[in-house]
Design a binder for these strands. Structure first.
Lengths: 151, 151
DNA sequence: ATAAAAAAAGAGTCTTTTATCTTTATTTAA
DNA sequence: TTAAATAAAGATAAAAGACTCTTTTTTTAT
């Protein structure tokens, strides 16, 4: 559905949002190790998010990435749009160039419900909601056993 | 969701199933032109489906691809499994190595319903069902204007 | 037998996505 | 005012997916 890159972006933002109370910045190396995402690749993704104003960063010693007030209120769809674009919600299931209710493929109607359910979920969920889930111990950002069991 | 290749496979099979009444075989060039799929690429996909017994083929003059009795009764999930594998239904939305109800990512539960809805649809739908939709003029395999309007 | 038609197979290319490595720019603190 | 820390940028590479081209094999019909 969404690209791996986009998943990395969301996890990166949520990681920063989780740590926002500590009022400190996080270096790319720390974030990447914690989330087990290739460092430089994640770096580029976060830089992209900074350019788009979704997160912030400061260079130099004691610099790093951090969230701003707006960040935690950002709907996921905004991140998806920034990284993958909204086109992903219009792709034909059977690989035709176009697919719409006026010229549907034989799977169009079958999956249209799912498609819009997913879209709406991304519209409704905010970064804050994912933070809550993780704070509650209902879900995890990384697979690290320590993370999963340190409750 | 499913790969472009898998979509091509389904469209190829349905094309052949649609023509089954005419009791004739179809050359790869004809199929590819009709469906607007790269010829040699589709050729390999169909050859794969022949090896797996989902469709049939005969070489030589007047040869080509054609469906057998079993083909139209094939559930779509069987094609998806043959081409993409069932692993696609287990991939983590956020790109983690694993994702399950015991160690879920923050989107796991949100989308689990959709995931299994899609799986079940592929399980329940058979090639015959897609043929019916097209025969009824409810949907189309190719975008060709003539196809879309020749009613 | 031979030529032609067609699938099958092999090998290679192009594109996109994902990932790595290196250098540069900025900032801070000593 | 220099060294160190850090993000930013640039360039390259590796992997996967999608696609192309060429040759081989099989079959049919003449």
């Amino acid at each position: 559905m969404i690209s791996k890159t986009c998943g990395y972006a969301i996890r990166g933002i949520v990681f920063l949002a989780l740590e926002q109370n500590k009022h400190r910045k996080h270096g790319i190396l720390e974030i990447a190790e914690d989330l087990q995402i290739p460092q430089h690749f994640l770096g580029k993704i976060l830089q992209d998010l900074v350019r788009r104003g979704i997160i912030n960063s400061i260079k130099g010693p004691h610099g790093g990435f951090f969230v701003n007030a707006k960040t935690i209120d950002t709907p996921l769809i905004e991140v998806v749009e920034a990284i993958d674009g909204l086109g992903i919600f219009k792709k034909c299931f059977l690989g035709r160039e176009e697919c719409s209710s006026t010229n549907p493929c034989p799977l169009h109607d079958e999956f249209d419900g799912c498609r819009s359910a997913i879209f709406k979920t991304f519209e409704n969920l905010k970064i804050a909601d994912l933070v809550t889930k993780i704070d509650n111990g209902d879900s995890y950002l990384s697979l690290n056993k320590e993370f999963a069991t340190e409750i």
